[in-house]
Write a protein that binds this DNA or RNA. Structure first.
Lengths: 343, 343
DNA sequence: ACCAGTATGCCAAACGATTTGCATGCGGGT
DNA sequence: ACCCGCATGCAAATCGTTTGGCATACTGGT
């Protein structure tokens, strides 16, 4: 919101919009002066200000932001590109971002890529063509930063590999810590054959690392059969769980890389007549709303989606307005285990 | 996406972006010509086109959309103003809208109002100042349409009172039909004391009307004590349910105006040791994802959020590109009961 | 009278595209 | 020779702001 709340719906007096020159004409001053009373960038006599403001009110003038953007080279807009806004995690992240930047008059533009790299790139191109002042990339990676050969606008990556591009700001959950806590909790509960349902990509970092680390600490060897790939969705989790349970020697616990997968896994357990957590413990990752709705309530690692979006917004603002132009910063947000009843 | 997918991330060759004049200079033609080969609005000799395209490639030129918008007076952006993108219903609606307009090169801009009328109005002002080509208003009402005294851009309202402003396009779920079906289903199951948890506003239309109608048809008088106000949230539903169950003569069924409230009601039932649907039947409205996750799975009315957003997008496009300039159209989308296990 | 200093406002050039009308060159019909 | 029509391409105005540099007027000190 770049203008203060009025409590009244905006109205255009006629069909064509009023321009600054018309205001100037009515007020009997030059456009320059009108601009200055609006921006306050140069001193204008009190009396003149009055006249101008009257004219503005009388005409119902509203500045044309497109023209303004063209001249000032900033659009007061940030973009967030996510796989799917329908996914609660990204919805919450988006809200955090919006709340962070709204106060400074920035609007939020959303792109859904479905995780398709072609769409990621064309949306990235699209948003910089649209002149956004910053972009937060929560789908796929972005490299090159803002420097030469880069995107041309400040960017911040969400999650992903910290080493990927040190020039781009990054905000990431402490995946490894969270996973570690989750798996540790499982072994503390006496589980030994602990499977993991991963995301679709091969990934040596983050969630899988924490899993391996916790296992190693407990002297449990990792069984490659117990590492299975999901696709972040509920049906994907269900399928993976069925595969796991068809194994000659079943796991007695499964750690899922996100909640949706975990919910799918619970579906599968129910279908198989397995008790959760009696027969098999399940823990998720993210702590979406649904985690408290599913039966049994899901033990999961809280992924601070809102805070992530908010932090990304602040990082962006500090580059756009704060004058920060240094190298890429990394902020990692804590992920705490929340124990409910599924494990 | 206004440019086709490239499969490659966009890069700027130098720090400052390349402009059309630079391309023209390199190609040895006038800016006019470059513009024409880009837009195809006027014929340009094949050989010249080649030269120009080469220059474009060589420089990595990308058109500046802000400048383009200023001149053409369209931003290729639509805005959607919702109470909260975090609410799955609005997230899905937003996705439908985005999918509808994306193919025509329109981007989607999101505003969260939290239902605050001041924010609604200032966001409305903000988006028209930003020059969006259309806005879909899913939070509160918008009146005045695009005509004199109106907003200045095409708008479509989501839900709300059909009679409110006939000049503005409206897409609404068939609330009344859906509610009617839900309540009928309840009486068919033998329920007679059927409560309703409403939204926060007094509302004579839609969901409540269907409720009353179904009751009337079945010869059941409406008991004002059984009509209680919620706030669309889970805690709100829980509280309302507790109030209902504290009544001297308890309801044996409750129809909730949305799923979140229904889930809260189920929470309350569990807290009270009540079986669902054994002791009390519960039906919701919306059919969000969580409806299949809750225990027992929620019987609810499917509110076609995606289709609603999509339809809104089409309505907008038909005004922006399709040349439609007639009076407000109304499209009402069917709401079907989906029977699961809570009633 | 003169000059420095301050207060106030205007001119005109950007910003980067689109678009209307005109200019030019050429081929062919009379 | 002359004129018409067609195919091309360009000049210049325009969209609505912002902003650096300059002009003007007035104050007060000498």
């Amino acid at each position: 919101m770049s203008e203060p709340a009025t409590g009244e719906p905006p109205r255009a007096p006629e069909d064509g919009r009023v321009t600054l020159v018309q205001v100037a004409k009515l007020a009997g001053v030059s456009p320059t002066t009108v601009s200055h009373v609006l921006s306050g960038k140069r001193w204008v006599a009190e009396s003149t200000q009055e006249t101008v403001r009257d004219a503005i009110r009388q005409l119902g003038y509203r500045p044309n932001n497109v023209a303004r953007s063209l001249r000032t080279r900033q659009s007061k807009m940030v973009a967030v590109v996510v796989p799917d806004i329908t996914n609660p995690f990204y919805a919450v992240l988006t809200r955090g971002l919006a709340d962070a930047v709204d106060g400074s008059g920035y609007g939020t533009y959303v792109c859904n890529t479905d995780g398709n790299p072609d769409r990621e790139n064309s949306f990235l191109a699209d948003v910089v063509d649209r002149g956004v002042d910053g972009v937060v990339m929560a789908s796929g990676e972005v490299t090159g930063g803002v420097g030469p050969g880069g995107l041309g606008v400040p960017a911040v990556r969400i999650g992903g590999d910290p080493d990927n591009d040190p020039h781009v700001d990054l905000v990431a959950p402490d995946d490894q810590f969270g996973s570690h806590a989750a798996v540790r909790h499982l072994v503390e509960r006496g589980r030994r054959r602990i499977a993991m349902i991963e995301g679709p990509h091969a990934s040596g970092f983050g969630r899988e690392t924490g899993y391996r680390q916790a296992l190693a600490e407990s002297g449990i060897p990792v069984d490659p059969d117990l590492l299975i790939r999901g696709d972040w969705t509920r049906p994907g989790g269900r399928k993976a769980m069925h595969a796991l349970m068809a194994l000659p020697s079943r796991p007695d616990a499964v750690f899922c890389a996100n909640d949706l997968s975990a919910i799918g896994a619970i579906d599968a357990a129910h279908e198989l007549g397995l008790g959760v957590p009696a027969d098999v413990s399940i823990v998720g990752f993210d702590d979406v709303d649904a985690a408290t709705i599913v039966n049994p309530p899901l033990t999961t690692v809280r992924n601070p989606a809102y805070e992530t979006g908010y932090a990304a917004g602040e990082l962006l603002l500090s580059r756009v307005n704060g004058g920060y132009a240094g190298d890429g910063r990394t902020v990692v947000l804590p992920c705490l285990l929340v124990v409910r009843q599924s494990a």
